[in-house]
Design a protein around this nucleic acid. Sequence first.
RNA 1: GGGUUGGUAGCUCAGCGGUAGAGCAGCGGCCUUUUAAGCCGUUGGUCCAGGGUUCAAAUCCCUGCCGACCCA
Length: 590
Amino acid sequence: MEDTNSLIEQRRTKLAALAAKGINPFMNKVSLKELTGCGEARAKFERGELVESASVAIAGRITAYRDMGKSQFIDLKDVTGRVQVYAQKQALGDEAFALFSHLDLADFIGVKGTMFRTRTGEISIKAESFTVLSKALRPPPDKWDGLADTEVRYRQRYLDLIANDEVKRTFLLRSQIIREIRTFFHERGYVEVETPIMQAIPGGAAAQPFKTHHNALGCDFYMRIALELYLKRLLVGGLDKVFEIGRNFRNEGLSRKHNPEFTMLEAYEAYGDYETMMETVESVVKRIAQNVLGSLVVRHQRRAETEHALKEVRLAFAEATPFFIKSGEPSSAELLPKDRIEAQILATQEAVDLANLSKEEPSAIAMRVHGAIEATLSLLPVDSEKAELPRRRLQSALSTLQPLTVEKVIDLTHWRRARYKDLVCEKAGADWFELTPSERRRRATEDLKLSGDIANGYEDFEVTGAVFEKLVEPTLIQPTFVTHLPKELVPLAKLSPDDPTTVEVFECCINGQEIAPGYSEQNDPVAQRAALEQQAGGEQQKLDEDFLTALEHGMPPAGGIGIGIDRLCMMLLGQETIRDVILFPQLKPR
RNA sequence: GGGUUGGUAGCUCAGCGGUAGAGCAGCGGCCUUUUAAGCCGUUGGUCCAGGGUUCAAAUCCCUGCCGACCCA
């Protein structure tokens, strides 16, 4: 960045002026012994721990000042909060008071003074002396509107933290969440370990790895995609309860839910099974919610523009419907039966109209309208020029609606358990599993409109998987353990004794996302080898022989879980984007 | 990859064919209990880049670059 900017020049001039007066604008240290936090000083005064006229020393960044001529009000901020400093010319002396003209927003100063309350009731500190601690050469972001440019917020997160208090709050809470998790597992007798991030054979999940190279060893390594295989080696080694919180790296696309590096907790408990781990997940999440958020009910912020957005949607839909109403025209009628189109329009219109009157949760309304519009959209012929306008209208309606569909209340008091097959049948029809594979494929692609989600080469179980992923999972807002997954879907777990077509696995879904999978871990080395060989698809170099050798030494039966920490934070902290719970999310380099 | 949308002062944004704008920040004044302090004055721009249309382009069109959201 160029320094021709005049604001920066002015600050440099002030810096020089300070130096000319023999003041070091970048102090080596502040005596921390006597220092009180800014917000802490306020709180202590409020609680009576600091009385009127009590002496305090504080240090912080100047976030605002109100110059009254012979006196000034300065807001100082540190991580504990904000406090107002009252500086009088008379109290400080002319020379010291004059230094304020060399100070700017964002500079750091230390203040010694006494507690008092102003005429308007604000807890403040009357300055007796102050010290320049550090000069800022660049101006801070806007004091009212904060920093809005998403890219700058992520690239220069420090500015985001300075300008937006709720962002700071989010990350302070994330830290507490992780601390709470650690405490939980330590209290249960778990050992925290650290395992290699650079691995010769990245295993434990099906994902594309990142590749790196070791010069001295002259070989390639991969960044790990899961923690699993090393933690299981430790079970073999007799660490009966282990956990690790660490970064995984997956070389895949980026989205609202995906960052290439993300934080994962994995925990394994010998002599436990997936039931044990369900209890573990439920307990740890409840504990976090209670201790960090103070409630088992998580409310995701409702957006203010709800009514406005729904109005836009109605408008867009009204402009789009003529296309359907005149469905006698070949553009739409040639592809679909007229009565189906009309039924769809009626359903959509009903959903949109209902939004007008209903007193339901805005999120519920938004979701229903969203679904209806999506369904309508899927009826539009792809190649028709006439369909172009309605398509655009509906798509813009969808994007208007999108932010609303995530408003919700999550109640962590009750944790539902449901079988995978039952959930699929709810969405795909009670007879789903009695159909032939080709009938299933037809129903999924045509009736359920999943054609875009089901590739031609999909196996039968993958068709069912798509139904689950697209139709079931997003609706699982309240905590739900999905159990009895088909064995084809999860090759590395043990079969369920009561239904050998399924495995002892759960997926814990909250907030419409999979938050934590759990397993009765496979400890049969022969079965494990067979499963891994199949997964490797004949590429022997992908087989982690060392891990299989470990299993052959005997691994106790064990339950295991993984918890996606980032997604857990999204759920608990009401954030819609993974980038808002990761301090420095991955962006394209500048 | 497709759709939608955005890029204008340090920050947040308005302007959408006819002299480049506001608030905040900055600078100069006034003001000893203000708090989005106030009042008076004032500095600051490659309107993302390049091409085109036009008497005239920040504005309309095309191409590109960089974002955001949604879909895949």
